[in-house]
Amino acid sequence: MKVKISEIANLPTKYGNFKIQCFKENHKEHLVIFTQNLPEIPVVRVHSECLTGDTLGSKKCDCGEQLEFALKYIAKNGGMVIYLRQEGRNIGLLNKVNAYALQDKGFDTIEANHQLGFSADERTYEMVEYILNHFNIKKIKLLTNNPKKIESLKDIQIVERIPVKVEPNPHNKDYLKIKKEKMGHLL
């Protein structure tokens, strides 16, 4: 895997003071946001990009709330957020908006992806192990509800899974139901 790695910079945020580093893999630039003093076994959140949820505050998903929960938790407990540029479960922004339009017509998130010719979830997690190896991290406490993320980290020991707790709203309750019932999320 050919990856370019940026320098480390300071990132003061409303959640706390972090460090930030970029890992460029082909055309995707992933971010790592981490606390200055990483514990021996850090808390790690693997978060896939969601422009509508993370930046625009969309209520159709729980992504923005999960990212906020993770940043607060990691600022307090030490660790990192690995922010993967895999918009819309890695179908891209244009296809994600098309999937939203199909959801407006009654399809659930998985059905919408299938209508567009994609699997339920196109994301991959090889970059996570690359980043953790770069930081010489072999054991983590994984902040996730997604069993696919747990299964994907084959060479990293997960000593604990920490659930991400966010409150559903009227706009995402069906979305969360699909994540639990069809994708096996631990909600």
Score class of each variant (00 low, 15 high):
Glu87Phe: 00
Ser58Val: 04
Glu65Pro: 00
Leu71Glu: 08
Glu87Ile: 01
Tyr73Asp: 10
Gln86Gly: 03
Gln86Ala: 06
Gly79Met: 11
Leu67Gln: 05
Gly78Tyr: 13
Arg85Ile: 09
Ile74Glu: 10
Asp62Arg: 03
Val81Thr: 14
Tyr83Trp: 11
Lys72Met: 11
Ser58Cys: 06
Gly78Phe: 12
Lys60Gly: 03
Lys59Met: 14
Gly78His: 13
Leu67His: 04
Tyr73Thr: 12
Gly88Tyr: 00
Cys61Tyr: 00
Lys72Ala: 14
Gly57Lys: 10
Lys60Leu: 11
Ala70Val: 05
Phe69Pro: 03
Leu67Arg: 02
Glu68Lys: 08
Glu65Leu: 10
Tyr73Lys: 15
Glu65Trp: 04
Lys76His: 14
Met80Ile: 09
Lys76Val: 11
Lys60Glu: 13
Phe69Gly: 03
Leu71Met: 15
Arg85Cys: 09
Val81Ala: 14
Glu68Tyr: 01
Lys60Thr: 07
Gln86Phe: 00
Gln86Arg: 05
Leu67Ala: 05
Leu84Tyr: 08
Gly57Cys: 07
Gly57Ser: 09
Val81Pro: 11
Phe69Gln: 03
Tyr83Met: 13
Glu68Val: 02
Lys59Tyr: 07
Arg85His: 10
Gly79Asn: 14
Ser58Ala: 14
Gln66His: 03
Met80Lys: 10
Ile82Asp: 15
Tyr73Leu: 08
Glu65Cys: 05
Glu65Asn: 12
Ile82Pro: 09
Ala70Glu: 06
Gly57Arg: 09
Lys60Phe: 06
Val81Met: 13
Tyr73Gln: 08
Gln86Val: 02
Lys59Ala: 12
Ser58Phe: 01
Cys63Gly: 05
Lys72Gln: 15
Glu68Trp: 01
Gly57Leu: 06
Gln66Leu: 01
Met80Phe: 09
Phe69Glu: 03
Leu84Pro: 06
Val81Glu: 15
Arg85Lys: 15
Met80Cys: 13
Lys60Tyr: 07
Lys76Ile: 11
Glu68His: 06
Lys72Phe: 09
Tyr83Gln: 13
